[in-house]
């Protein structure tokens, strides 16, 4: 039986842990709201961009000179996986899920005889993947110390991805990130970046009825890199919203667990205290009887 003093110390330490986790939960909730607002604000651009892409990409079907960013460069030997994770932890299995999905994907591709490279976007993913797949990591970037990701950040990433693709360092680019479904659910999602996933046009698929200035090809050359940046930006926004949601959930259950622990410890403490009192009483009484 631990002494009263050790029990008291343990209760106090669990209490202060609970204070920290509940504060972290509040902070995560506030940051989640901000991240969600940012993701919401970026949506109109994404939607319109998708519509334009759908219209233009449909017309490029079967065009042998179509942009390699759209249809690929005809090879699929080297794959690049962009792993989007958060920069910080304490968010349950949020980062681990992405990392596990990336590892599985790498295994599958390697079993098919493909070469795989990894671009680790986010510090946690980089740290974890560096442990066992050090030689595969082709690049990394994180946003440690930044309040919110900006579009310029996503553009830098997209530019780097396109540069590597044009230099022939890889043939296919795929992004793995946490899709923010709602506060409770974040689903790990794989999204092809190069060749671009063409959003399906809902009207006639073979030919769009837009006039295009200057012309389809030239416009697509400008649109595709932009579209790539938009997709990376969206993934980063969902990643940050998902991270805070996940952290909030994790901290909530940590706070609850701490509460349960305090309850149990307090019970033990009271039992021990009462046992002590009873013991002392017995001692006094038997002492008095002996006289």
């Amino acid at each position: 039986m631990p002494s009263l003093k050790t029990l008291r110390n343990r209760i106090n330490s669990v209490k202060s842990t609970q204070k920290i986790t509940s504060a972290m939960k509040m902070v995560a909730a506030a940051k989640l709201r901000r991240a969600q607002a940012q993701a919401e604000a970026a949506r109109p651009y994404t939607v319109r961009m998708g519509e334009m892409m759908a219209a233009l990409a449909a017309s490029e079907k079967g065009n042998p000179n179509a942009s390699p960013l759209l249809v690929g460069n005809g090879r699929s030997q080297t794959h690049l996986i962009v792993a989007v994770t958060a920069d910080r932890g304490l968010a349950g299995a949020f980062n681990a899920n992405v990392i596990r999905a990336v590892r599985a994907e790498v295994k599958v591709l390697q079993a098919q005889g493909k070469a795989v490279k990894i671009f680790a976007l986010g510090r946690k993913g980089n740290d974890a993947l560096r442990r066992d797949m050090k030689d595969l990591i082709a690049g990394t970037k994180n946003f440690v110390g930044k309040k919110a990701v900006s579009f310029a950040d996503a553009e830098d990433v997209a530019r780097e991805l396109i540069r590597g693709f044009r230099a022939g360092e890889y043939d296919v680019v795929k992004m793995v990130y946490n899709h923010f479904q709602n506060v409770m659910v974040q689903r790990v999602t794989g999204q092809p970046l190069i060749p671009a996933a063409i959003p399906t046009a809902n009207d006639n698929v073979t030919e769009h009825n837009y006039e295009v200035e200057p012309d389809d090809g030239t416009l697509l050359d400008r649109l595709l890199p932009r579209n790539l940046a938009v997709q990376v930006y969206c993934a980063l926004l969902e990643n940050s919203a998902g991270f805070y949601a996940s952290q909030m959930t994790a901290m909530d259950s940590a706070t609850r667990n701490a509460g349960e622990m305090i309850k149990k410890l307090t019970l033990n403490y009271n039992r021990a205290r009462q046992a002590n009192i009873t013991k002392e009483l017995i001692e006094i009484i038997s002492g008095a009887e002996a006289v």
């Binding site: 233009l56 837009y210 200035e213 400008r222």
Partner: peptide, 18 residues
């Protein structure tokens, strides 16, 4: 627009431009 300024009035032909 990349090819010159475009005045957009209601009923404009469908157009995508840089």
């Amino acid at each position: 627009g990349t090819e010159g300024d475009i005045g957009v009035l209601p009923g404009h032909a469908k157009l995508i431009t840089g």
